[in-house]
Nucleic acid binder design. Structure first.
Lengths: 218, 218
DNA sequence: TGTACATCAGTGAACGCGCGTTCACTGATGTAC
DNA sequence: TGTACATCAGTGAACGCGCGTTCACTGATGTAC
């Protein structure tokens, strides 16, 4: 496995450190990859197109990346670094009216993150589901802390007798996160029907709040 | 648009009706498409491979389908026809302990459907998200009745004062369905962690039950 | 400040390959009488 | 039952194209003295 897949290292395929010009070129290639991912979707992505879009040649692409997947992996890592600070939000108060606000903030942060990186997160999830370990790692690193904190809060609520012990805390956390991921992914489509973003956020926030606290009856 | 995209019609690209032998060949091509979709994922799917897998020639493929997308669309339509009778389940009782059983049945039906058609439903959703009207239609036709019934039940519970009026019924239904879709899609991965299918089903059932009825406190 | 040299960065041009697609043809099946 | 003919179904072979990939080379930048 080439060094350049290791997060944070900035090296060419040869293993050399990169100067400022090279870093700019590399970033231009990554930007082009993302642009094509957004414009044409996950299915039609080629080295030649990426190089063309970045105003450079395929040979240059191969200086920096082994293949298209590796460029996508780097984009996924960049997106992960911009993951919002969900942990702090989740560690906020879940009591009473403040709890609902906390839930809203969590949902908003999640949806924002997804609209900013829709195409990249999509190919990350696809490749991870397909079995690619590198993408699985990026997703896990990004999501695990959130799931663990959510699960911990649910477990606390169970101990306090507010939430049914029949919920599996981690499974519930995963279910809520899945809901947020795919809600974010389908936002546009839902807007074609009568549902606007505010209603979606509010409704998801209430679902999450209810699961996390057991509250929710009128 | 060629006639063969219309559901139920069985015609070649030329518009002719198909005899029994032709129908078998066509189905063999569809089976090969699904097999490759399962084995290699959504990203590497080609006419040549499909023909090879079906023990026939690319030229034959073009007798029946305009391109790979059209074959995938037919698979999505076939999967839709095997959609379980969720409506009946949703129209069952949501009161007391029976309600929890209803929720479990809904979750199980959903998860079964997804494990049976994972790869096809995935490409359906991807293509629909990408903006392809034909795939959007198939997904909508398949999901809308379910969402509508779910939303109706939630609205009833709101009228009866059991569920908060702040939930948008249709948004809540979409959120729950999204949760089920992506939970089903990630089943394998969750099993790598400590979470087994039974726990997942039970937990999702309780989340749904709670949202639909307002019940769930210990 | 200028010159020589080493390294960094980028690319033109070519190669092979496999895919998408089509055409003209062959073989299979059904039907008429 | 047999023969002639029409239609159905399938495919070998070829074409062009664009992609992935690499190599040998050029130009840019930095450094030593």
């Amino acid at each position: 496995m080439p060094d350049s897949t290791k997060e944070g290292r900035r090296v060419a395929q040869t293993g050399r450190a990169l100067g400022p010009r090279a870093l700019r070129t590399r970033q231009r290639l990554l930007d082009a990859t993302e642009q094509l991912l957004v414009e044409r979707g996950v299915l039609d992505l080629s080295v030649v197109d990426i190089a063309r879009t970045a105003d450079t040649s395929p040979a240059t692409f191969y200086h920096y990346f082994k293949d298209v997947e590796e460029a996508a992996l780097h984009l996924a890592e960049q997106a992960a670094r911009e993951m919002p600070a969900l942990i702090e939000l989740i560690d906020g108060s879940w009591d009473g009216a403040a709890g609902l606000d906390t839930a809203r903030r969590v949902v908003n942060a999640f949806v924002d993150h997804w609209s900013a990186h829709h195409a990249v997160l999509l190919i990350r999830n696809l490749s991870a589901d397909k079995g690619d370990r590198r993408f699985q790692r990026v997703r896990r690193d990004s999501l695990s802390p959130v799931l663990d904190r959510l699960a911990a809060r649910i477990a606390e609520a169970q101990t306090a007798g507010r939430v049914s012990a029949a919920l599996h805390p981690f499974a519930a956390a995963a279910a809520l996160a899945s809901m947020l991921e795919s809600i974010s992914a389908h936002t546009r489509e839902l807007e074609q029907r009568e549902v606007g973003r505010e209603q979606l956020v509010e409704t998801c926030a209430r679902v999450i709040h209810q699961v996390m606290t057991g509250e929710g009856r009128p």
